[in-house]
């Protein structure tokens, strides 16, 4: 399968020269008040993701992975610190502005796919573009993405007529339809069998390599994390370390971080 070109593909080759990071988080703090108790979910997390980079975030349950993903995805506001997407700070933006920024600059992939059941795969993919008022323009991009993700012949099917792997490919196409700066994936292989999950990971990897996608994924799955360029470890709401995945076997390092 070949990966089709995208408007951002040409930018990929120049990624190293890009002045602004695709995603930049500085000093993120997030506290939750639960039953009279304050849970400090994030304690000053810094994270920079370069354009064209594939970063996996790992950590035990309760380490703050999902909270971090919410903040990076502009789905929640930090108590302290800031998030910037392609150099544009989200600090101080109202809900509509945050929503617009999320729609135009971010793509989301969920563990449980989260496709709209009564829409066809085509309609699901086009949804963010239609909400953005660019549904017609996105048709051409849809065809390219469908071809790249191997779902061209499934576009007129509804989600319940698709396999898990096909649904996640449709979800990935939806995440990419507005040509986002970063794709945020929450356990993208968590609901897939090993083989299908492997295919989705391969797609992500090839998208990053060939099209310059920028991906941040939160995962428990060491195998999924090992397809990234870099693994960031969280523990007790803070970054406890990171490992560059450079082709050498870093499994022992990953396990060490996960064990704490």
């Amino acid at each position: 399968m070949s990966i089709a070109s995208s408007p951002r593909a040409s930018a990929a080759s120049a990624a190293a020269a890009a002045p602004a990071a695709a995603l930049e988080a500085r000093g993120l703090h997030r506290r939750f008040h639960l039953g009279g108790e304050t849970v400090h979910a994030l304690r000053g997390v810094d994270l920079t993701v370069r354009s064209g980079e594939y970063v996996a975030v790992m950590g035990p349950s309760g380490s703050g992975k999902s909270t971090l993903l919410h903040l990076l995805g502009l789905l929640d506001q930090p108590d302290e610190g800031s998030v910037a997407i392609a150099g544009r700070s989200a600090a101080g933006l109202d809900d509509d502005a945050l929503t617009d920024l999320r729609r135009r600059r971010l793509g989301f992939v969920f563990q449980t796919f989260e496709l709209v059941p009564n829409l066809t795969a085509r309609e699901n993919v086009l949804l963010p573009a239609e909400i953005d008022g660019r549904g017609a323009e996105a048709e051409h991009r849809l065809e390219a993405l469908a071809h790249a993700l191997g779902i061209t012949d499934r576009l007129e099917h509804r989600p319940d007529q698709l396999s898990g792997g096909q649904r996640q490919r449709v979800a990935l196409a939806r995440a990419l339809i507005n040509d986002p700066v970063v794709v945020l994936a929450d356990e993208p292989t968590g609901n897939l069998d090993t083989r299908t999950g492997g295919e989705v990971l391969e797609l992500l990897r090839r998208g990053v390599d060939e099209l310059g996608w920028t991906v941040v994924t939160v995962t428990h799955d060491v195998r999924a994390a090992m397809t990234a360029d870099r693994i960031v470890f969280l523990r007790d709401g803070a970054v406890s370390g990171e490992v560059a995945v450079d082709g050498t076997d870093v499994t022992h390092l990953v396990e060490r971080y996960l064990r704490g």
Binding site: F32, L34, G62, S66, G73, E187, G237
Partner: peptide, 11 residues
Amino acid sequence: PRAALGASEVA
């Protein structure tokens, strides 16, 4: 909107 992503973890 974060409720959509909140299935796996509270914090």
